[in-house]
Design a protein around this nucleic acid. Sequence first.
DNA 1: CGCTAACCGAGACGGTACGTCACGTCTTCAG
DNA 2: CTGAAGACGTGACGTACCGTCTCGGTTAGCG
Lengths: 216, 216, 216, 216
Amino acid sequence: MSKQPTRPDVAADAVRTGPRGRPRSAEADCAILEATRAALVELGWSKLTMGDVATRAKVAKTTLYRRWAGKSELVVDAVADLFDELELPDLGSLKADVECVVLRFAALLERPETRTALMAVVAEGTRDEALRGRIRSAIVDRQKGLVLQGRARAQARGELPYEDDPATAARNADLIFDVIAGAVVHRTLVSAEPVDAAWARCFTRLLLSGLASLRN
Amino acid sequence: MSKQPTRPDVAADAVRTGPRGRPRSAEADCAILEATRAALVELGWSKLTMGDVATRAKVAKTTLYRRWAGKSELVVDAVADLFDELELPDLGSLKADVECVVLRFAALLERPETRTALMAVVAEGTRDEALRGRIRSAIVDRQKGLVLQGRARAQARGELPYEDDPATAARNADLIFDVIAGAVVHRTLVSAEPVDAAWARCFTRLLLSGLASLRN
Amino acid sequence: MSKQPTRPDVAADAVRTGPRGRPRSAEADCAILEATRAALVELGWSKLTMGDVATRAKVAKTTLYRRWAGKSELVVDAVADLFDELELPDLGSLKADVECVVLRFAALLERPETRTALMAVVAEGTRDEALRGRIRSAIVDRQKGLVLQGRARAQARGELPYEDDPATAARNADLIFDVIAGAVVHRTLVSAEPVDAAWARCFTRLLLSGLASLRN
Amino acid sequence: MSKQPTRPDVAADAVRTGPRGRPRSAEADCAILEATRAALVELGWSKLTMGDVATRAKVAKTTLYRRWAGKSELVVDAVADLFDELELPDLGSLKADVECVVLRFAALLERPETRTALMAVVAEGTRDEALRGRIRSAIVDRQKGLVLQGRARAQARGELPYEDDPATAARNADLIFDVIAGAVVHRTLVSAEPVDAAWARCFTRLLLSGLASLRN
DNA sequence: CGCTAACCGAGACGGTACGTCACGTCTTCAG
DNA sequence: CTGAAGACGTGACGTACCGTCTCGGTTAGCG
């Protein structure tokens, strides 16, 4: 989950017989991420401070920097945990599943932690390739997995055809992912309007019937 | 364009026949916004500082603060100019128009100034109602205007029916706006993959055929 | 008294028409030096902290660094003021004058500020040419002036002959200065034994009768 | 030489027949002191760190702290070795002996290790009684021994009378010690001028003829 | 010859201070 | 009254050492 960049790779050198020195506290990692989320809720991204997080987690500032390169990396890991809670329900139809996951995703984005953090780390990521990769692996790829899972389930149900060309299949999945995630994020954070059941229904209808046309 | 919160309101006092004392330099405003954009390109949002902008614009820091409340407000105004360049082309069909505007919007988001600034000010806006309003009026509403304009044009062409219920019409416009803007922004800044002609074509097909189904 | 290394030299460039910008607070300088002395008394050199001095002086840390390059420079200036209090008495005879100044110098070195600071800055000075120069001009040269003044007075009284060769005169003054200052400092700070009237009498006798022999 | 404060006292418990367990490495002690001197030469007192010394000596930081309470104690022991090299020559006359030992002492103080360390530990000692004692026993008393030894030798030669009152004798030895050590240290480290043969001759003349007068 | 106590290396830990940077405000002088 | 210049209080930054601790793994010397 959390990368620890300064930790020597265990398998890097056969000479190394095992982890030497005092091992890192696992509790600290947990307390820090918890404290980070709490600070995000109270202060928001721009007022959040490494020192403040350290204080809340009852940990020295140096301990934070030993594990994370900076605020952005820390926050990515802290909110990544929340995105793990997202699951694809199985309500019997693709339409119901999509509507439900849209609502769940929106609910996640309404939470103050994610609300303030997501756009901020993406903004930082526009100038930091490493951070962008971290966001991708910690957050984005997991959501994309939901799209793949949903499609597979719909195909098993016979709601969607199996695609012949794997390249096309991947391209379509990416497109659908950007449309769903983009629309929900944009409505929630930019337009700042609520994603309610009606909107989810409308959006899902648009998406699914549009989807059908891609196959002609 | 730029709010001048400390400027004495002209109508505040009937005795005042006009602004007294030395008037503010109009060149300064322009130089500051230009300098802000240059700094965004070179440094990105998070490394951009008010002092640096002042130096580049050959202006005192005080002058900046007299005109803008802070970094976020300044940057919103600076990038808003760029969004004004976005125009809806008239290529004869809704499909062509949408594809074109999608590509133009994506090209705008590829520019380093907008890339780094847009997400950042939105992130700030999640905790600052006033800023959110400023973003809306300076940036978002203009883009939304393109959607309305495009619909009107398509209706005139007979590609889309006139809608009876104005509330439904507004809801649909909002939905379409969030879908288009969200998808392009997400692909560009989050997925960090290019919006090329092929993607634009795919996306437009999905959108327009989905759109048709909303009317059943 | 206190060098302000970042202050632009007034006469450096004819273009400069006058001191521009807000001038530095003179009260701050004074409060800082006072606070430094107080901190030296309470904490000693090694526990003295720039941040603590700033707090005591009710001044920002940055204000300290704007005026002094570091702890050593600050302390040199702070204790230099104390060395200005040293004066050569006129008790009618060279012997009485020397005894008296030895006792006054020892009393100065018994004060906790000077006690803890003097050796420390000298130690730092062994690796820092600029600091050594600062110590010399702020502290050492003033004491050396006492030697010259004392000799001149003794010569006026007829207690000491006028020296023909100015080079020899300077060499002798230096020697006497090192012997007096060195002996008092060494007894006070290294041997850590008191310089009382008896010791001063003994030492003065040794010095003055030795001095006579230099002239043969 | 090196105090080992945490070593269980041999006589503390009658049951203990001897030191049990693995004994401390004697090589480590030596390597550490050597490393300390090397670090003093390269970095000087204030930049010298325990961690750096440990690294140079290829020893864990813990090993240092098991043997010395801190930087000051370590450095005192490290430079004390150098002061042991000081010896009183026997050149046949008191004058020649004093001149020679003055030059040797000055040469010792020109070495970068001693130059930077001596004043620093004395400065620390002004606020630390235990450290002051350690300096006295490890460094100062050995030098003072040279004075006693030189006087005894001069008395044996008939150059100096035997003193009747042992208290007076001790007082005089202390005075001479402070004068010699003080003058040399002050010229070397404060005035920062060289102690050459001419200065040594001048100083010795002053001292010895002054010394004669103490006996009247 | 095997126990076992004390050692050793590595390195994480909670702290404290560092010196720098940017913030947004202020005070001065010049136009 | 504006504008440039720059000092000011504030507060976070990321780093460096401090001295302590917790590990796994030696290494004597006694039984």
